[in-house]
Amino acid sequence: MTNIQWTEQTWNPTTGCDRISDGCLNCYALSMAKRLKGMGQAKYQNDGDPRTSGPGFALTTHLDVLTEPLRWKKPRKVFVNSMSDLFHARVPRKFLAQVFAVMAATPQHTYQILTKRPERAARILTDLCTCGAGHPPGEHFRSSMEWAATSHSPNYVPGLEHGIYHRSRWPLPNVWIGTSIESAAYARRADALSNTPAAIRFISAEPLIGPIPNLDLSDIDWLIIGGESGPGARPLQIDWVEDLLTNAAETATAPFVKQLGSVWARDWTVNGKTVAAHGDTKAGNPDHWPAHLRVREYPQQAAADA
Rank of each mutant, 00 (worst) to 15 (best):
N26K: 14
D127T: 06
Y44L: 03
S153T: 08
A276V: 13
T115R: 12
S31T: 14
Q237G: 09
A304F: 07
H88Y: 01
P75A: 03
L244H: 00
L193Q: 00
K43Q: 12
T61I: 15
A58Y: 09
D280W: 10
Q301L: 14
D287T: 01
G210E: 03
D216T: 09
Q301M: 15
A192M: 14
P107M: 09
A185V: 15
L260R: 09
G38T: 02
R90K: 13
Q108N: 10
P290S: 12
G178T: 02
S31F: 05
Q108Y: 06
E119H: 06
G284V: 11
M145A: 02
Q5P: 15
S168H: 11
A185R: 15
V80A: 03
Q9P: 03
P213T: 04
G279L: 07
T110M: 13
A254M: 02
V99R: 03
K258A: 00
R123I: 06
L260S: 15
M32R: 05
R189G: 11
W264G: 01
G272R: 01
E68F: 06
M83D: 00
P50D: 00
T251P: 07
H109Q: 04
M39E: 14
H88T: 04
D280I: 10
K77Q: 04
D47A: 00
Q112C: 01
P136R: 15
S53N: 05
A148C: 14
K94Q: 13
Y156N: 14
Y111N: 08
L236N: 04
A265M: 15
F57C: 09
I212S: 10
H278R: 08
A121Q: 05
A303Y: 08
K116D: 07
S144H: 04
I113F: 03
T106N: 04
H135W: 02
V78M: 09
W147A: 12
H292Y: 13
D18V: 05
A291L: 06
I225W: 04
E139I: 06
N3S: 15
D64I: 03
P211F: 10
R117T: 11
V275N: 07
A58E: 09
D127C: 01
M83G: 02
L59Q: 09
S84Y: 05
F100A: 07
L63Y: 12
E146Q: 14
H88R: 00
A133F: 10
P118N: 08
G178M: 06
N285P: 08
V80K: 06
D85F: 12
A249E: 11
K37Q: 07
Q98F: 06
I238H: 08
F202R: 02
L114D: 08
Y186D: 03
L260W: 10
P13T: 03
N155W: 12
